[in-house]
């Protein structure tokens, strides 16, 4: 459980970070909170010569809410997200989900940007961001671009981000006031990834549904959202069950996961409907 040797870099600005990435190619990775990457390095499953710590880059911090959009700097920790009262008022779904991630110690270090950028299907934030229709801003040598969360995830640990880009911020449209919301998660214990988790938004003009850790990417289903918007809960559940592709692991076999996915989704829907104004 000891990583191979590596060079540690701590750039002060984004341009320097990208320069280091370009200089070392796939021998370099950026690290945010480190809760995914560092264990992989300790297991020697990630073999990196250069680790670029983003902590010192002030531009990656901060939470702002303006003109119907909440913008989270990529280095915002889960703890900071939970503690931000304005954000909790604007998008209560975010806080509800963040409180179900890991434990307080991890949330002090773990970042929103790291959580969404790593492409780990077990992470909670990617599905949540798809539900919220967030966009991710990527900074690279070619400049800045935005990718919708719903287009970002390609396979486990593979995303639309190129190796020479850094995810800098997350832009989330603030749901209309009165939108019903819920994040429901079944897990084996505190700190565990989801056996199944569901993010649900139900507004006056539509609904959005995404699920976590039930495929090699987060699963957002347009069909499920459409069905839910029309009041067809069972249609929503059926559409989502058709979209997920869970694998057997120590959490249980596939049939169990599909069953639980439906149960958790229904619970999230019930909760969201009860909160809709």
């Amino acid at each position: 459980m000891i990583p191979a040797g590596f060079e540690y870099h701590r750039p002060a600005d984004l341009a320097s970070a990208v320069d280091i990435l370009r200089a070392h190619g796939d021998e370099a990775r950026v690290v945010a909170g480190g809760h995914s990457l560092i264990p992989m390095m300790k297991l020697r499953m990630a073999d990196l010569r250069h680790l670029i710590d983003l902590q010192a880059i002030g531009a990656l911090k901060g939470i702002t809410i303006a003109e119907g959009t909440a913008t989270l700097g990529a280095m915002t920790t889960q703890h900071e997200l939970i503690e931000n009262a304005d954000l909790a008022a604007a998008i209560p779904l975010l806080r509800e989900a963040a409180l179900q991630i890991a434990d307080p110690q991890v949330r002090y270090m773990g970042t929103v940007g790291g959580n969404v950028a790593n492409g780990d299907p077990g992470n909670d934030m990617p599905g949540l961001m798809q539900c919220l229709d967030a966009r991710f801003e990527l900074y690279g040598a070619e400049g800045t671009r935005q990718v919708a969360a719903r287009d970002f995830y390609e396979a486990a640990y593979f995303t639309a981000r190129s190796d020479l880009e850094i995810l800098t911020k997350i832009l989330i449209p603030v749901p209309a006031s009165g939108t019903g919301y819920a994040y429901a998660k079944q897990k084996r214990k505190i700190g565990d990834y989801a056996t199944a988790a569901a993010a649900v938004l139900i507004g006056s003009d539509g609904a959005s549904v995404a699920m976590t850790n039930l495929s090699d990417t987060p699963v957002w289903s347009e069909e499920a959202g459409t069905a839910l918007a029309s009041g067809d809960i069972e249609g929503c559940v059926a559409a989502m069950l058709a979209a997920i592709d869970p694998q057997e692991d120590m959490r249980g076999p596939i049939a169990f996961k599909k069953h639980v996915a439906a149960v958790i989704l229904r619970r999230a829907i019930d909760s969201a409907l009860s909160r809709r104004a």
Binding site: R188, T195, R251, P253, A255, F256, H259, V260
Partner: peptide, 9 residues
């Protein structure tokens, strides 16, 4: 969880 679920199933 899954083994208890399996009992019920």
């Amino acid at each position: 969880h899954w083994r208890i679920w399996k009992i019920a199933e």
